[in-house]
Design a protein around this nucleic acid. Structure first.
Lengths: 197, 197
DNA sequence: GTCTATAGGCTGATAGAC
DNA sequence: GTCTATCAGCCTATAGAC
């Protein structure tokens, strides 16, 4: 064979990673196959030897992105609960996350498009998100707290990105940090950092 | 003149209303001008006598949608705070809202697209949202509570729509209702209704 | 003010050379 | 496995008839 064994698998991984970044930044439907492939250093013709259709890429990409986010979230489990919550809050509800969707969570970037996608896409999304929710619920000590935390964090980044002024973005982020910290750990929790611009 | 005075203004309002619905359901960028106009009983040629460009329609549509949502939210101010919060929660965090984006709030449907739009679009969004946040903050007695409530409610509908199973959607909605009710009114608030499918 | 027709560019996907 | 070339269809926006 003209290509090494394992080449295709590595290239597929690269396609997933690169097109995930572009999709989170510019939207999945709004970005053409040719553009996605150009970002990975190839052409649209090559794409179809890796995925049967653009929609199949979307499913694989969702799985890849949510798994990566979950790994990030599941890290640092040794600390106590309050410190872990404060740390995750400062990481997720940051201006850096608002400014760099390509490096961030898929929920604020792609959830609206997933909601408009066929059931097979949404099933992949649900399976992956439920796994994240399960881990969160275990740490927080409650299923409901996990859903609430996920919803508010994703919603905060979603709205902050749509805002025009950085001062307003910071006000929203800091408000959500304070609200969630108090609701999840009680008034005595160590206060979250102020967002640094 | 062959058309009545005031006709154009009325038609413009109809265009805003109809294209708002379609955009919230199918996405704004994903829907062509011709499709938007067909939904309003006209053709793409006529569109450009009402709006200079599709992007200008987006700005007008955002203004129209957020103003309508704010009017809905600002209603029923006579009750006490806890009843009002419970009522708004049951209205916004409902399966009907999940299932019918065309009739619902623009935030879960369009915020991601607004975030990818040029500054002039985001400025319109920010001005309108700040007015809603101001009213909410007054009622809740705190700027931060308003941002947190907006973020979690929008995030909850955003994520619920991307889920596949109705039981999971209901679990998420009920969790957010309970979480927000407790965080905003304390444990003694009357419990929110369970979501009815 | 609305219509049809059109321009130029983008899209997802396929065919065949290498 | 990747390339170029191509198809049919959609997009935003404009021109000219009525």
């Amino acid at each position: 064979m003209r290509y090494k064994a394992g080449y295709k698998e590595g290239k597929r991984r690269e396609l997933l990673s690169v097109s995930g970044k572009v999709a989170k930044r510019d939207g999945f439907a709004a970005t053409g196959v040719d553009t996605l492939m150009k970002a990975a250093g190839a052409t649209s013709g090559a794409f179809y030897s890796h995925f049967p259709s653009k929609s199949d890429l979307f499913k694989a990409l969702i799985q890849n992105e949510l798994t990566a986010s979950r790994t990030l979230l599941a890290g640092a489990p040794e600390e106590n609960l309050r410190d872990w919550i404060a740390g995750e809050m400062n990481r997720y509800l940051s201006l850096g996350h608002v400014r760099h969707p390509e490096l961030g969570c898929a929920l604020p970037s792609l959830a609206a498009e997933i909601g408009r996608s066929p059931p097979d896409v949404r099933r992949v999304f649900e399976a992956e998100l439920l796994e994240t929710q399960r881990i969160l619920a275990e740490r927080l000590g409650g299923d409901g707290k996990a859903w609430a935390l996920l919803s508010q964090m994703a919603g905060a980044i979603l709205i902050a990105r749509a805002l025009s002024e950085e001062t307003t973005q910071v006000a929203l982020l800091d408000a959500c940090k304070a609200f969630l910290t108090e609701a999840l750990t009680g008034k005595n929790g160590s206060p979250p950092e102020r967002t640094i611009g």
